[in-house]
Write a protein that binds this DNA or RNA. Structure first.
Length: 886
RNA sequence: GGGCGGUUAGCUCAGCGGUAGAGCAUCGGUCUUACAAACCGGGGGUCACUGGUUCGAGCCCAGUACCGCCCACCA
């Protein structure tokens, strides 16, 4: 017999099997069945694995392994995202440490440097995913900036330009003065911050008084080109058209009527700064107002702000403007105020709304079919509630700012001629040709990262080329992602997928849980609250980490995960213990199987034994339940069901009930059959567990009699209705209850495990009698009793502990061991429980409406249970009173 | 300002119409020939609050309170 270590040692096993799988090509597609495709959310090249990723990709791997075992032609495409701003920021930070800026290097050199960084550090996460056990097709790994991907982005840009879905325009956009680029609306975060509300007097030119405006940003007044009040506002009706003198600047500006001014706010008059506020910008367009930029891209005041302020930082300027106004008694009051402040999602800098020329995608037209696709059920969100989230966003969508003033990314394929014509082309040669000899220069900007990642599900399959992969594997089956990128990414994949392929990019969108720390806050590396998955894998194994996460992955519910105590991660420890349990149960089976057992010998030999019929029925129910739960993305249910089946049913009962047969030293046919059955149940369980715990299950499976090269490509168990056996389940329930009661008596009476007791049972029920007869050896073993006698009913005797379960009377003679006080207490407690339950049932049964309105089945059940209880109570009372006689 | 989640045993969470479950922790016992990372047994919950629907409600409806997310151009 081969030596098997007492505890599962993940490290060696993981390495061994991952390279085994890889070298056998199991990660590649190839099943006989229909296709099943997933393209993973490409992690940022700058990233390293955190717990959220571990969850995300574990879910991917579970689904992919499961479908592969079911025989689907299964493909999971991995890859990485070039992550424009994020990556550029990281590289710039490195440069800063060296004392240089990207401008010192110049564009070419900077890009070289960034590629160098990407080649060196990027892909760290890929290696980490492999450690996790992910069975993705690494040969198909893609990068959103690789050669073919560039073609996809060009194709998209050119076609949208030709369809007039892309335009350039001057707009007030969100500008990050630190990243020095425009960012889209969704890349802005809002945070309430304490601030001041300044009430400023704007004098009327004719000297007849002033109008008070309120603002949180006094420095922008230098760019005011009007003051607006609501047309319905009685206070201003007579003044519309009047001219005001803008303080400090001395410019003359009109008082205009526009209903975006809210009469109830402050004085009802609002300053209008078209260059630095989106509302004001739009009001400016309505009234043909001039636009004056007083703040530049780095957050400093421009020349247009006046010589006194030019060059000042926007906050310094604010202080100075307020001082100057105060000096002229033009500040009416300053109040404390809370303002929703816009911040750059990348770096946290306060956003500056800035008037600038940018490229936009016209969204209305693109959104329409993407809305219909979801409404029509062609894309299904799981959990369903996110459908609403998506639709609300899409139905109120605004045009998308796609140009970024960065260097790292897809350069915008637009060239400008000297006379200002835009030429959109796939490359410079084509642009030159189109320019017909006019000199041209390429637009400096790059595209928003999401402009490229929105093409992911089809670009990774080869689009815009009509490749075999695209033909075969698109659309994909499911997208598994986090909820915070529903707008940024999911929505955009849907509308671009439909636009370019006339088909939705995926059937389902599964939004997985957010992993939180013990405070219920989002885990974040930067806040130091992150846990390194590799550390956990090192300590407990990849399977344990996967299981710990998956068992908590209820659809869409957040997971709180950093319960660490004395350097131990309790949640993973629990999963590791389960892995070890599986290991040891397998060890038991293997130790008894003997050498050279063939697959056929380890098969299910039909049996009339209760335990056999029962475990087969339970196994079958488990297969059914687990498969169903997988179909519904209820991964926690999958994990919990398997945990319960394996530990409670298989280990605690089936193995124990089969032990004497299985370990029998004689090599009888009966014993061999029993060994075959136990191996069969184990092998089937391993296949069910494999998607969750790939390494452990492979390690054991390879040692068991099996067919095929790897559990990875073994078949997924199918439920078999003929194996349902209600009778076996009921009888087993009785047997378990009986054994538990005897153990209970032992424990409460402090009977040492070593002392063999006798057991008297009383029942008139013939089926209960035969249940006891047929399983008397098991009862003796598991309840640790020597002799069992069965009679019609038991009469009270002295020195015995009594109980009753499912109508079977139990008596354990204790001779001198009994403690009457304890026994009285124990029976009293039992009696109390039963009386309580009986009372509740009686109350329901007495209720006319219950008997009339509740389903007959429920009433019937209640009545039966009630009658059973009454009989049991009766007998316990007799016992109790006989104790009282002592 | 709108929308969405959550509130169940000391902790982390399942359960979502038939009268409460798991793991950990805790208490007592056990080296019972796979496993002390284990085994056996016990204790512990007015299922946030208030109303309502129902024969029956953690479970459905309405509202309240805290906690957490998302969206929003309120100067």
């Amino acid at each position: 017999m081969t030596e098997i270590p007492k505890a599962y040692e993940p490290r060696e096993s993981e390495q061994k099997w991952y390279s085994f799988w890889s070298s056998h090509g199991y990660f590649k597609p190839g099943g006989e069945g229909p296709k099943y495709t997933i393209t993973i959310p490409p992690p940022n090249v700058t990233g390293s694995l955190h717990i959220g990723h571990a969850l995300c990709y574990s879910i991917h791997d579970v689904l992919v392994r499961w479908k592969r075992m079911q025989g689907f032609d299964t493909l999971c495409v991995p890859g990485m995202d070039h992550a424009g701003i994020a990556t550029q920021n990281v590289v710039e930070k490195q440069l800063r440490k060296e004392g240089v800026s990207r401008h010192d290097l110049g564009r070419e050199k900077f890009l070289e440097r960034t590629w160098q960084f990407v080649n060196e550090y990027g892909g760290v996460i890929i290696g980490q995913l492999q450690k996790l056990g992910c069975s993705f097709d690494w040969d198909r790994t893609r990068f959103t900036l690789d050669e073919g991907y560039v073609d996809a982005v060009l194709e998209c840009f050119v076609r949208w330009w030709e369809e007039d879905l892309i335009y350039k325009g001057a707009r007030v956009i969100n500008w990050c003065p630190r990243c020095l680029t425009a960012i889209s609306d969704i890349e802005v975060e809002h945070e309430d911050r304490p601030a001041k509300l300044y009430h400023i007097r704007y004098p009327l030119k004719d000297g007849s008084g002033y109008v008070v405006v309120a603002t949180t940003r006094p420095e922008t007044m230098l760019g005011d080109t009007a003051v607006a009040a609501n047309p319905e506002d009685e206070r201003y009706k007579a003044l519309f058209g009047a001219v005001l003198t803008l303080p400090l600047a001395g410019r003359e500006i009109p008082l205009i009527a526009d209903d975006y001014a809210r009469p109830e706010f402050g004085s009802g008059a609002v300053k209008v700064t078209p260059s630095h506020d989106l509302n004001d910008f739009e009001a400016g367009l309505r009234h043909n107002l001039p636009q004056i930029n007083v703040i530049d891209g780095s957050g400093r005041m421009t020349e247009a702000a006046g010589a006194r302020y030019a060059g000042l930082d926007r906050y310094e300027a604010r202080t100075k403007v307020v001082e100057d106004l105060q000096a002229q008694s033009l500040i009416e009051k300053i109040e404390d105020y809370t303002v929703p402040t816009a911040l750059c999602a990348r770096c946290g800098t306060v956003i500056e709304p800035l008037l600038s020329e940018q490229w936009f995608v016209r969204m209305k037209e693109l959104a329409k079919p993407a809305i219909d696709a979801v409404k029509g059920g062609r894309v299904k969100f799981v959990p369903e509630r996110y459908e609403r989230t998506y639709l609300d966003w899409m139905e109120n969508i605004r045009d998308w700012t796609i140009s970024r003033q960065l260097w790292w990314g897809h350069r915008i394929p637009v060239w400008v001629t000297e006379d200002g014509d835009y030429i959109v082309a796939r490359d410079e040669a084509e642009a030159l040709e189109k320019a017909k000899g006019r000199p041209i220069t390429q637009d400096e900007d790059v595209l928003d990262t999401w402009f490229s990642s929105m093409l992911w599900p089809f670009a990774v399959l080869g689009w815009p080329k009509q490749t075999e992969d695209l033909e075969k594997y698109y659309p994909t089956s499911v997208l598994i992602t986090a909820r915070d990128i529903i707008y940024l990414w999911v929505s955009r994949m849907i509308f671009s997928g439909i636009y370019f392929n006339q088909e939705v990019p995926f059937d389902d969108v599964y939004i997985y849980a957010t992993v939180l720390d013990e405070q219920g806050k989002r885990m974040s590396k930067s806040l130091g609250t992150g846990i390194d998955p590799l550390e956990i894998i090192d300590l407990y194994g990849a399977d344990a980490l996967r299981f710990a996460l998956l068992v908590r992955a209820a659809r869409g519910q957040d997971i709180r995960f950093s319960y660490v105590e004395n350097g131990r991660q309790k949640q993973v420890e629990e999963a590791r213990n389960f892995a070890n349990k599986i290991w040891n149960a397998s060890r038991f089976v293997l130790m008894n199987l003997g050498e050279g057992v063939s697959k056929t010998e380890a098969n299910w030999v039909p049996s009339d034994r209760l335990a056999d019929r029962w475990i087969l029925a339970e196994l079958n129910a488990t297969i059914d339940q687990v498969t169903r739960a997988l179909e519904e993305y209820k991964l926690n249910e999958v994990a919990q069901t398997l945990y319960h089946f394996f530990w409670d049913d298989f280990c605690d009962w089936y193995i124990e009930l089969s032990k004497s047969l299985v370990t029998s030293p004689e090599d009888t046919e009966e014993a061999r059959a029993a060994r075959g059955r136990i191996a069969y149940v184990l092998e089937t369980s391993l296949r069910l567990l494999h998607p969750l715990m790939p390494y452990l299950t492979e390690e054991i499976w390879q040692r068991l009699p099996h067919e095929g090269e790897s559990i990875m490509v073994a078949s997924w168990p199918a439920p078999d209705e003929s194996q349902n056996d209600e009778q076996a389940r009921e009888q087993m329930q009785t047997l378990i209850a009986l054994i538990t009661k005897v153990r209970n008596i032992r424990s409460e009476m402090n009977i040492p495990a070593s002392s063999r007791l006798s057991l008297h049972l009383g029942t008139q029920d013939t089926s209960a009698r035969s249940l006891i007869d047929e399983n008397s050896d098991q009862i003796k073993r598991l309840a640790r009793v020597g002799e069992i006698t069965v009679s019609d009913r038991l009469s009270a005797r002295k020195g015995e502990a009594r109980d009753i379960v499912y109508g079977i009377e139990i008596s354990v003679p204790l001779e001198g061991l009994i403690d009457i006080g304890k026994e009285r207490e124990r029976i009293g407690k039992e009696l109390g429980k039963k009386e309580n339950e009986a009372r509740g049932l009686a109350a329901r049964l007495d209720n006319d409406s219950f008997r009339e309105r509740a389903p007959q089945e429920v009433v019937q059940q209640a009545r039966q249970r009630h009658d059973e209880l009454i009989a049991e109570i009766e007998k316990l009372r007799v016992t109790l009173s006989s104790l009282g006689d002592e």
